[in-house]
Design a binder for these strands. Structure first.
Length: 415
RNA sequence: GGCAAGUUACCCAAGUGGCCAAAGGGAUCUGACUGUAAAUCAGCCGUCUUAGACUUCACAGGUUCGAAUCCUGUACUUGCCA
């Protein structure tokens, strides 16, 4: 199992590799990964962690999904600037959302059934004095200052608050708590969390005299240097209300040739032979994008289910197909529009307004500009007149398809 | 608590009384090319029904015909001293 996750490129940093290999190939262990509620939904960066938990569960181990009810109230130090604190109500709501999202990827049946935990459960009852006496004594300030996340901030203009400085202690406490109550001996997380991961292993070593382990997964990066997990500057979320299955599928379909094999390893459960075959396909017939299609299908199915994935594929086929939208059946067309960012409007609405309503552009000025640049189409017909209305374009199905640029689509449902 | 420096549009960063909606770089976006690629080249890049107008340069006042630029106060950040 260790060699499997190494091959998939999931290990950037870890505690002793030989011990981990032995541990993971032996009898079932308990491991955990934490997710802080910094937004109403998890995103693709978190998906790496979720799927790692699932992989390890499939290998017979017992995963704990931790949601950061307390750590989410504090905020881990970002390298650039101090976080703005969210209200307790907000965090509590997000905790519930994340709990539900993570749960969907794990199995709660069988001998290695997963569990969900919330670190607020053991942090909230702790008094400040007990915290300082029982936990604080194990932490040396010198060590804490040397963590990258902290030193980066100390060397920046932003500085760091005592609140965020303390974050690593809270996360270390989580690991100790889970070691004591659940026998948890492994924590996984992103390599940017390495300082926090080792905070836990060090604490357990000092408090219990036991060596436990940590695995830090690499930050996923794109070959062209852009940030992974962003679509038009926005994060790609796991919540279908925040990123539609259609947009989710399109995101993966647009993966660069240079990245697609690495993505298949990290984000799918396809086996080694299949991934290697797809690697051949990329090398010999890149224009067919077979690997991208496999990737998009697999990941979208994992997150949104196969039925939603097929709908997304059908919608894309209809909209990107031969361009003759009139030939499509009403049911297919309406289903496609529902997959897109859409809006309902009267028949005399201006195209500019509809571009704004469908979020294809963020302002009327931008919509105007897009038309002036020749980047706006309705039903695949280029729009030249900035004052045009939608009425001549309404299809029999009572819908119209807006397009900005080559592949940003929006749907209009006529009242 | 004292002293000093700083707070400019998505990010970095110029700008020290009118020529500033604000240089430059990056990101995003659009066009050409293409595989719904990449690379490259070009354009756009505060808001508003173009022209023209309106709101911006931490916040609140003030000086001035006119302020991102000067003055006063407030908030926040950083450094040094205590």
């Amino acid at each position: 199992m260790w060699d499997e996750i190494v091959w998939r490129g999931l290990v950037q940093l870890s505690t002793d590799a030989d011990e981990l290999r032995t541990l993971l190939s032996g009898s079932p262990i308990t491991l955990y990964c934490g997710f802080d509620p910094t937004a109403p939904s998890l995103h693709l960066g978190n998906l790496v962690q979720i799927l790692l938990l699932r992989r390890l569960q499939l290998a017979g181990h017992r995963p704990l999904g931790l949601v950061g009810g307390s750590t989410g109230l504090i905020g881990d130090p970002r390298p650039t600037a101090e976080r703005v604190l969210n209200t307790k109500d907000t965090v509590a709501t997000w905790v519930q959302y994340l709990h539900d999202q993570v749960s969907r990827f794990l199995s709660f049946d069988g001998p290695n059934a997963a569990s969900m935990v919330n670190n607020l459960d053991w942090t909230a009852p702790l008094s400040a004095v007990d915290f300082l006496r029982d936990i604080g004594k194990y932490f040396r300030v010198g060590t804490m200052l040397k963590k990258d996340a902290v030193s980066a901030r100390l060397n920046s203009d932003a500085g760091i608050s005592y609140t965020e400085f303390s974050y690593q202690i809270l996360q270390g406490m989580d690991f100790l708590e889970l070691y004591r109550t659940q026998g948890c001996v492994l924590q996984t997380g992103g390599s940017d969390q390495w300082g926090n991961l080792t905070s836990g292993t060090d604490l357990i070593h000092k408090a219990e005299g036991v060596r436990v382990h940590a695995i830090g997964t690499p930050l996923i990066t794109n070959a062209d240097g852009t940030k992974f997990g962003k679509s038009e500057g926005n994060a790609v979320w796991l919540d279908p209300a925040m990123t539609s299955p259609y947009a989710f599928y399109q995101f993966w379909l647009n993966t660069l040739d240079d990245d697609v094999i690495a993505r298949l390893k990290v984000f799918t459960f396809l086996d080694r032979a299949e991934i290697e075959r797809l690697g051949e396909a990329v090398a010999t017939e890149p224009f067919r994008r077979e690997a991208q299609r496999a990737l998009a299908f697999e990941v979208t199915s994992l997150v949104h289910g196969e039925a939603a994935t097929r709908s997304a594929i059908d919608a894309a086929a209809a909209l990107f197909g031969n361009g003759d939208l009139h030939a499509l059946e009403t049911a297919v067309l309406v289903a496609a529009v529902r997959e897109l960012p859409n809006t309902t409007a009267p028949v005399d609405a201006t195209i500019i307004q509809l571009l704004v309503d469908t979020t294809l552009t963020s302002s009327m000025g931008e919509a105007r500009r897009a038309i002036a640049q020749g980047g706006v189409y309705v039903n695949n017909v280029k729009i030249d007149d900035p004052d045009a209305t939608i009425s001549p374009f309404v299809l029999d199905a009572g819908v119209a398809i807006l397009r900005r640029g080559k592949k940003t689509l929006g749907g209009v449902l006529i009242e």
